[in-house]
Design a protein around this nucleic acid. Structure first.
Lengths: 198, 198
DNA sequence: GTCTATAGGCTGATAGAC
DNA sequence: GTCTATCAGCCTATAGAC
């Protein structure tokens, strides 16, 4: 009995996700250029030919993952703004979310893709354009309104807000990297990081 | 008039450094796998053939740079231990040195090579071995004695020293990455970072 | 020492069978 | 939808001329 159209659709969707997941794993370990299509294929347990049935190229897969990562990081910041409480409580909440997402699941891999995308020159042109486009809101620029809010009620020290935002994200990004190298490393509490704002 | 032996020696040394410097620049921008020998050659203004006259392979160049980077980071920590003052003053001094070295010169490139070497799977076997060998002292483990010293005289909070060290290096590494992406970004003061210890 | 030419291997991408 | 076979291009590394 042949598959129905909707079953076919579902299969396509599922395979596609399998490939993307496999790619995420390999990309985050080896970087875009160093991963071969055959690496992705064998991680996903299918032939390299099939990868091309679902995606146009290796670059397309990478670009897609970068956009997902950007979206996922954007969502956390958005949620933080909607949170109850003072500015610093919002930042603390966000920090807890991030640290938690780095600790379990493969959110950390999306994080690393993002770091690779923004630190390496050897990425698809489309990724470069995306990262400099209006569409992409950098985490640093999204954090600044929150910092200003905290400074107005003297919750946060009167330091250059950009400097504070850079420091905060340095911390987060650096920790993601450390965590990848040493997955069992102790995770700092959000309060430890928040200290830089006081 | 032919060159004397010592002039030849000097030329070799000089060319060798030129190539290493060029390689450092390209590696840090594109990563090891994505840089071609011809990239290094043209950055150094010489033919690709000549690169092979000085080095056995691309991997050899990368490995050499990783070892230099490790040495240079080890030296800073060593100097910090020899510094006068309390533990936290030593850490502050070290932080200032690091921030300064990230700000000018191409020390930051060595830093990034180190990050690449320790985060990517796609590095020469010799690099992997080196990073797990006794020869290589990880910055985190080198910082711990200093933290313990500070905790004994209540200069530093009684938090898990490993956690503190991880947090500190997360910050430093993350900042190096940010600085590379955005070279004009404001540089936090050492005191801002040191807050996590109090 | 330095260059150009080229061999050899690998990999991204496609074609075509099932 | 999935696989295997294969092509075409690129890149490392070497050989040999100057």
């Amino acid at each position: 009995m042949p598959r129905t159209e909707s079953q076919n659709q579902e299969l396509r969707e599922q395979r596609s996700e399998e490939i993307l997941n496999a790619a995420l794993g390999v990309f985050s370990r080896r970087g875009m250029v160093a991963t071969k299509i055959s690496d992705i294929a064998s991680e996903a347990n299918l032939s390299h030919g099939l990868v091309y049935h679902y995606f146009k190229s290796k670059e397309e897969i990478f670009t897609l993952l970068v956009k997902r990562a950007a979206e996922s990081s954007g969502q956390i910041i958005e949620k933080a703004h909607l949170q109850d409480g003072s500015a610093i409580e919002k930042i603390k909440w966000m920090t807890e979310q991030i640290l938690h997402s780095l600790t379990d699941g493969n959110h950390i891999l999306l994080f690393l893709i993002m770091i690779q995308a923004s630190t390496s020159d050897a990425v698809p042109e489309e990724v470069k354009q995306f990262l400099t486009s209006e569409e992409f809101k950098s985490p640093i620029s999204c954090l600044i309104p929150l910092i200003l809010e905290g400074q107005q009620c003297n919750e946060i020290i009167g330091e250059n807000p950009i400097k504070l935002a850079v420091s905060y994200y340095s911390f987060i990004q650096g920790f993601a990297i450390n965590k990848l190298q040493w997955s069992q490393c102790p995770v700092p509490e959000a309060d430890l990081i928040i200290k830089i704002f006081r």
